[in-house]
């Protein structure tokens, strides 16, 4: 897919600066966590245990006020006691008020963010690139109409319409069986990972226009290239020209865009999960919403999932910067070596 020169340029930029390295580490952290979650997570992320609830992260001591409700006949007796809890290495990032291990939940949360980020971007990429290349290639009234359509889409912000659509049509959670559990490697872990289907689709539908605009711009400049004209003069169909000539030459900027859109998709997913539209109960955004209620006492419940999002998004953004710096489209446009 990449030419030798492109690879060389990727290597050069990577070695020159620290940022791509940081980005790669962040991204690897998230990707490895996501893929090997059942193996890496120290505990079942969904297992509740009231004995170890509200435990702070390791090395941290915190006064925690706990309410115990006891039924004494018909009387309900609420006793509040303040206990000082100290974090242990068994639960390095602490536990939430239900006694679930935060670290394990974060490791599992990576799955949702990654799947939503990548799948929605792929869908948007396919839809947007197809539309954009076609529109840019044909030009004329097709393009005119298309640009107005994009403006209509832009006039309603993605998040707003996403919320509206999920609110109306539901959240469509999709349980995906976990191969590690079905193969018996980690039998104690949850059997499925639930992916928020509606969010994935909605994010795809509302970021395709970014791809469409970039692809259209490329197609507009590529279609007057002589090799396109020569193919047309030889009788190539529009489809063949778009596939053989426009698509490969438009790919570089579209790929740079794709990395950046993965970052947006991860953020959008967390926002929608936070607002309660995801239909899943194990994701970074959901955990932040859950931790919000306990911010006064158990601050770590909302803190760590947020940091996880920041790490993931920084990783993807730095990868995007790296690609953009290395694949500066002009670098690869050719140019005679006299």
């Amino acid at each position: 897919m990449f030419s030798k020169r492109t690879l060389q340029s990727l290597r050069d930029v990577f070695h020159r600066s620290l940022l791509p390295k940081i980005g790669l580490i962040c991204l690897l952290l998230v990707v490895v966590s996501g893929i090997f979650a059942p193996v890496l997570a120290p505990h079942d992320p969904t297992a509740q245990n009231s004995d170890i609830s509200n435990q702070p992260p390791v090395m941290v001591s915190q006064d925690v006020t706990e309410e115990t409700v006891e039924l004494d006949g018909l009387e309900q007796e609420v006793t509040q006691e303040t206990v000082t809890k100290t974090g242990t290495l068994a639960y390095p990032l602490g536990t939430d008020p239900l006694g679930r291990d935060i670290l394990s939940r974060i490791i599992y949360g990576a799955r949702v963010s990654l799947v939503v980020g990548i799948v929605s971007t792929l869908l948007a990429f396919m839809l947007g690139t197809a539309f954009g290349l076609t529109s840019g290639y044909y030009g004329g009234w097709v393009d005119d109409l298309f640009m107005r359509l994009i403006e209509v889409r832009l006039s309603i912000p993605g998040l707003v319409l996403a919320i509206a659509i999920i609110g109306i049509f539901g959240s469509l959670p999709i349980p995906v069986p976990d191969p590690f559990v079905s193969l018996g490697i980690t039998p104690d872990m949850p059997e499925t990972t639930v992916i928020p289907g509606a969010i994935t689709l909605v994010i795809a539908v509302f970021s395709w226009d970014h791809f469409a605009r970039v692809a259209r711009g490329e197609a507009l400049s590529l279609r007057s290239q002589n090799y396109v004209q020569a193919a047309k003069a030889s009788g190539a169909s529009s489809w063949a020209i778009i596939r053989r000539h426009l698509y490969p030459n438009a790919l570089t900027p579209v790929m740079v865009l794709a990395t950046i859109r993965v970052a947006s998709a991860i953020i959008l997913e967390s926002v929608l999960s936070f607002l309660g539209f995801s239909g899943v109960t194990l994701s970074w955004g959901f955990d932040i919403a859950f931790g919000r209620e306990y911010m006064g006492t158990a601050w770590w419940v909302a803190l760590f999932p947020g940091l996880a999002i920041v790490v993931a998004v920084i990783g993807v953004n730095l990868m995007g910067d790296w690609l953009r710096d290395a694949l500066d489209p002009d670098v690869d446009a050719g140019g005679a070596v006299e």
Partner: peptide
């Protein structure tokens, strides 16, 4: 870089906290 990578709802919660 941090600014474009931080989800605003979480930033808000942290500020409140």
């Amino acid at each position: 870089l941090l600014g474009i990578s931080t989800p605003n709802f979480w930033l808000g919660l942290m500020l409140i906290m």
